[in-house]
């Protein structure tokens, strides 16, 4: 019975992937119409030389709003899950409490390198954010570079748990503020579209 199931599985997998293969390997000349439209109109309409940024944050900003919300919900859901995981772990056994205090080896090499590299990464993130309209990059990319800079720095500089908790409180506030800012900018964009 198991073998039959396995054979069926392989056959269906092969057939389905064959179909996907037909789809992926069909070569049709790539359409140029939209490209030409954007090439001629973007600078007049948005003022941004970077077409990808103009599409991502202008023409199709509505998609980007959805994407940001996916990010937001995923972060919220993951944090919720982790919080509950820790809670259930505490309830389960007392001896497992130590599992959550990680003993990591912070050698001085890592400390030195990260403390020099971290600020540079953060500045690079800000640069990407600020100049995304004319060079590659943009808000989201810059933000994620910035975030990885902060994460790297936090690897080194958070020594004990109380500080960590303070940081999470602060991050919670930042999260709320950023979401509000996002919505306010969305509203402003709507208003601009309405009245100007």
């Amino acid at each position: 019975m198991r073998i039959i199931k396995k054979i069926i599985g392989f056959i269906t997998f092969t057939l389905a992937s064959l179909f996907i293969g037909i789809l992926m390997l069909t070569r049709i000349p790539w359409p140029t119409e939209l490209r030409d439209i954007y090439e001629t109109n973007t600078i007049q309409e948005t003022g941004a030389p970077n077409i990808v940024s103009a599409i991502y944050l202008g023409y199709r900003a509505y998609d980007t709003l959805g994407e940001t919300i996916v990010l937001f919900i995923a972060a919220m859901g993951t944090l919720y899950l982790l919080r509950h995981a820790q809670k259930s772990l505490f309830i389960a056994t007392d001896s497992t409490k130590e599992t959550l205090t990680y003993k990591t080896r912070r050698t001085s090499i890592i400390k030195v390198i990260v403390s020099k590299l971290g600020p540079a990464i953060i500045i690079f993130g800000m640069y990407i954010m600020a100049f995304g309209y004319r060079s590659p990059g943009g808000g989201f990319q810059g933000g994620s570079v910035l975030a990885s800079g902060i994460v790297i720095l936090s690897f080194v500089f958070i020594e004990n748990k109380s500080k960590y908790m303070a940081i999470t409180q602060m991050l919670k506030k930042i999260e709320v503020m950023v979401f509000i800012l996002l919505l306010v900018s969305f509203f402003l964009a709507c208003l601009q579209a309405l009245f100007f």
């Binding site: 939209l34 490209r35 954007y38 090439e39 990808v52 599409i55 060079s135």
Partner: peptide, 22 residues
């Protein structure tokens, strides 16, 4: 690259790039 400057023309298709960011 789809970044328009004075001498740039015939850029690649920007639409797939913008979609793939998402």
């Amino acid at each position: 690259a789809p970044i328009l400057e004075n001498t740039v023309y015939n850029v690649v298709d920007p639409i797939p790039q913008a979609l793939m960011l998402t």
